[in-house]
């Protein structure tokens, strides 16, 4: 039996808006096993992104517990969660979020630097190899502004995989791309995911994209349902 990598127990999340408490997630529980690919779907405002930010330790639930890689991140402070993220988690964002003042290669090596890997030569070698894999060899010294949207997302993919994360979170990774480019990025994402055996958690509106995942969680009115 596969080992559980994320375990969510009865979490809720409320925010105060205009003096009213607004319940976004109302007691959600599920498990995700190592190596699984999971899509989180739901209508706008249903709480997909909130759930993802909780799972990734970017935010804390109002109640309930989340265990990520045997650590209860819902009980950790900001700095402890940051350490876990640097060690085990990768991100791909809808708007790429590359650092404009760093070139492609430096953007990819950045997570290694944050992690404390100080061997520049090996960092660069690894980053070059990944850039090669996403089809950007020869573009290492280009700045984000010199790259197209699709190319920027490829750099972001290389950056996400460079630390060989155990879990990769992707937030609408193709939301800002045209259909053809989006397709290429998805192929790459799944290919790299399989090669590295990463657990993939993907927030998307795209049903076709969700179909490629092993499981789909649907968020509706603060509740979570596993799609058949």
């Amino acid at each position: 039996m596969s080992q559980s990598i994320i375990s969510v127990k009865n979490i809720t999340k409320s925010v105060i808006s205009n003096d009213n408490e607004l319940s976004i997630l109302k007691g959600i529980s599920f498990n995700i096993n190592a190596g699984e690919s999971v899509a989180i779907m739901g209508t706008s405002g249903a709480g997909k992104s909130t759930l993802m930010s909780l799972l990734a330790g970017l935010d804390q639930p109002t109640s309930g517990s989340i265990t990520l890689l045997d650590s209860e991140i819902s009980a950790m402070d900001d700095e402890q969660r940051a350490k876990i993220r640097s060690e085990s988690i990768g991100f791909v964002f809808q708007n790429f979020l590359l650092i404009p003042s760093l070139n492609a290669l430096q953007n990819v090596t950045l997570p290694m630097v944050l992690r404390g890997n100080e061997d520049e030569a090996s960092n660069n070698q690894k980053a070059k190899q990944l850039l090669n894999e996403v089809g950007l060899s020869g573009r290492e010294t280009h700045l984000p502004t010199q790259l197209s949207g699709g190319e920027q997302q490829r750099v972001a993919l290389a950056r996400a995989f460079v630390t060989e994360p155990k879990v990769l979170f992707a937030d609408e990774p193709t939301g800002n791309l045209d259909q053809k480019t989006a397709q290429n990025i998805i192929e790459l994402l799944f290919k790299m995911n399989q090669e590295q055996g990463t657990t993939l958690i993907l927030v998307t509106h795209d049903a076709n994209l969700a179909k490629r995942c092993q499981r789909t969680l649907i968020i509706n009115d603060g509740q979570c349902q596993e799609s058949a």
Binding site: E79, A82, I89, F91, L97, I99, L110, P111, L114
Partner: peptide, 16 residues
């Protein structure tokens, strides 16, 4: 502020 949020999401500590 967006860059700092991104760096934090990738695990950058306050010290870093």
């Amino acid at each position: 502020s967006e860059t700092v949020s991104m760096l934090k999401s990738m695990g950058a500590s306050r010290a870093w």
